[in-house]
């Protein structure tokens, strides 16, 4: 995916989450910043180091777990972390010490000597995270690290990301908006190869027109809306995006009529939809069934 007009700066600490639909250019951007791919034009700096001109110097400071990275089946988590560090140039004894510390920090010590092929999907991802955590890199790129994990494993992995972010900068790409909302200190939204928004979650929330969402089940009578937008999803569910006063008025009408509805501040899904477009919402609904974030009345 080609990237155009992608320009941003971010503090070099905490978690930076990049969200976007499939093919939005997330992986391309990560690969450029991680020096895997040379851009045709443009420039980027990480901690003052030029990504293109000083790639060798930058590689001393970065580590990446690519989107489709897998643990090597015939090795154990300890062997994986040990050899990754040796590949980075650590002496055997130092690499062994760091690998053991990293596995213990991620509570993987009991799996340290188990073959990777015998581990669960979530533990394999943790083992990959342990490899980069064990390194000296202060900038870590994780490209969709939780894709395919069940919700419990995903939340488990979030703890690891928070642990990683204590003393380094994490550049995270994700499909899961809830994940970005939970973890990101800074958030960027990529759509069609362009940067649609960047900032903290509250600042991005502040950029959209309507801050409240009222949702009605399919075939419900829809009250008149003075200020706001009414959309109907593929499943027939109606969503009204509006301001606080209007949301209060609508909910009062619905309560009097005895209708079922939910009301709450707009979720990141809603923000993403407003920023990137309807087709993206459909995709996100398919990816995260049942996630709607509001509270029921």
């Amino acid at each position: 995916m080609a990237l155009q007009d992608v320009s941003f700066s971010a503090p070099s600490s905490g978690i930076f989450a990049l969200i976007g639909r499939n093919g939005a250019g997330k992986t391309t951007l990560v690969r450029i910043l991680a020096t895997e791919l040379a851009p045709t034009s443009g420039s980027a700096w990480i901690n003052g180091i030029d990504v293109v001109k000083e790639d060798r110097r930058l590689r001393e400071r970065i580590a990446i777990v690519p989107q489709e990275a897998r643990t090597i089946s015939w090795m154990t988590p300890k062997q994986s972390a040990l050899t990754y560090l040796m590949w980075r140039g650590f002496e055997y004894s130092e690499a062994k010490k760091r690998a053991e510390e990293s596995l213990a920090r991620l509570k993987l010590d009991k799996f340290a000597d188990t073959l990777n092929r015998k581990l669960s999907g979530g533990t394999k991802r943790k083992a990959l995270a342990a490899m980069v955590l064990a390194s000296e890199a202060d900038v870590i790129f994780l490209d969709e690290p939780t894709t395919g994990l069940d919700p419990i494993s995903r939340r488990d992995f979030w703890e690891i990301l928070r642990e990683l972010a204590k003393d380094r900068f994490i550049f995270l790409t994700t499909h899961y908006l809830e994940e970005a909302e939970q973890l990101a200190d800074t958030l960027a939204v990529l759509g069609g190869g362009r940067l649609v928004a960047v900032g903290t979650v509250p600042s991005i929330r502040g950029r959209i027109r309507y801050q409240y969402s009222v949702k009605l089940p399919a075939n419900s009578p829809v009250p008149a809306v003075v200020q706001g937008e009414v959309t109907t999803g593929k499943n027939g569910e109606v969503q009204i995006l509006t301001n606080e006063d209007e949301a209060f008025a609508i909910s009062k009408k619905l309560s009097v009529a005895g209708s079922r509805f939910s009301i709450g501040p707009v979720s990141l899904d809603d923000i993403f939809f407003q920023l990137v477009g309807e087709s993206t919402l459909a995709e996100q609904e398919a990816a995260t069934p049942g996630a709607d974030g509001g509270w029921s009345a």
């Binding site: 020096t35 060798r56 590689r59 580590a63 489709e68 897998r70």
Partner: peptide, 22 residues
């Protein structure tokens, strides 16, 4: 196998590993 299935080479490209030594 290491490059395409495990993405190990991608991990090493973004590290101080030397291609020649690899």
């Amino acid at each position: 196998h290491l490059k395409n299935d495990f993405k190990l080479q991608d991990m090493l490209v973004s590290s101080p590993a030397s291609p020649a030594v690899y």
